[in-house]
């Protein structure tokens, strides 16, 4: 029993964190929004070079050969930076394209792949993706009809037509996507709390920083509580999937339900702490809040995932 990451896993995630802090501050994300870019080709290449995009692609196929446990901290860091584009979807879908014409391209990043589940009415990032991995297989050659989305770093579309190639390894697509998204949501939650903390330290009212008031302290402490207690279930779910535990589906759903709710609580607390500024287009907070609000309901919302946990936990006497 050892519930911790290895030094290597931590170091890789720290390296990604450093890259994103320097290369992708909120100002860059804001620029992408302003330019109508839902995907960042420059950053994408950096992530490909670093091995992030091919983290879960097996070594013989040119990838990093990592498991979901190796990757879960990366999803969290990508979430911390609010990285737009199909990063979560690509990382999860890429290993499932082994033996297809896209296998090489998804490793070096020249092919962008996204993922979609039946529960979701739209496909995210279909506008930039060459192929969509779904539980039924790989879909390509489709037509895309854009749908305006809440998070401008996540372009939505209705997809029609195209060809579906069956894939052998899509069984755990939904669960893996749920865990990866949960980790991304945890990262978003951390950043929203950080932004609120920064604001509460500098904004003064009644002659002192508002962070000195207990009403503000307690709001953020409660938000942090939810985010911190979503982490271990997310990491456990990553382990359950990596090691094919019989509880993997239940654990993935628990993670997604808790992380989605935690990120939502963090968004509400952070916005309240920002006051009127939090309701503006200018505040960086919105870049992260809107992604959290989109992702908390994508790939199964908390209600859907909770019912799945119910079915596992309440159905049969243990």
């Amino acid at each position: 029993m050892r519930f911790a990451f290895t030094d290597d896993q931590r170091a890789f995630a720290d390296g990604l964190h450093d890259l994103l802090v320097h290369e992708y501050p909120p100002a860059r994300l804001r620029e992408a929004w302003a330019a109508g870019r839902g995907h960042e080709p420059d950053l994408w290449r950096r992530l490909a070079d670093m091995g992030v995009l091919s983290m879960m692609v097996p070594g013989p196929a040119g990838g990093m050969g990592g498991t979901l446990v190796d990757s879960v901290l990366l999803f969290q860091q990508l979430g911390r930076a609010g990285v737009p584009g199909p990063v979560v979807e690509h990382l999860v879908a890429a290993p499932r394209l082994a033996g297809t014409p896209w296998a090489g391209g998804v490793v070096d990043g020249s092919v962008v792949v996204t993922a979609a589940l039946d529960v979701d009415p739209f496909v995210a990032h279909a506008d930039v993706a060459e192929v969509i991995v779904t539980p039924s297989g790989a879909r390509h050659g489709y037509a895309v009809s854009a749908v305006a989305g809440l998070d401008e770093g996540r372009h939505l579309a209705e997809v029609t037509g195209g060809t579906l190639e069956p894939l052998p390894g899509t069984d755990e697509l939904a669960d893996t996507l749920a865990v990866a998204t949960a980790a991304f949501l945890v990262g978003l939650g951390e950043t929203m709390i950080d932004l609120a903390g920064e604001y509460a330290r500098q904004r003064e009212q009644f002659g002192k920083p508002i962070g000195a008031f207990q009403a503000v302290k307690h709001l953020l402490a409660d938000a942090l509580l939810k985010v911190e207690f979503a982490k271990a279930p997310t990491y456990r779910a990553a382990w359950s999937l990596s090691t094919a535990q019989p509880t993997a589906g239940r654990d993935a759903s628990m993670a997604k339900a808790l992380a989605g709710e935690a990120a939502y609580r963090a968004s509400r607390a952070a916005m309240q702490v920002h006051g009127a500024i939090g309701y503006t287009w200018e505040a960086d907070l919105q870049l992260f809040m809107k992604k959290a609000w989109a992702l908390q309901r994508a790939y199964g919302d908390a209600r859907w995932h909770r019912r799945r946990v119910s079915a596992a936990v309440l159905a049969t006497p243990r």
């Binding site: 709390i193 903390g197 503000v216 307690h218 402490a221």
Partner: peptide, 16 residues
């Protein structure tokens, strides 16, 4: 406990 978290983990300014 919430005060402790706010002060020491979130590094918010000391309150009253």
């Amino acid at each position: 406990q919430r005060n402790i978290i706010a002060d020491r983990v979130l590094q918010l300014p000391k309150g009253v």
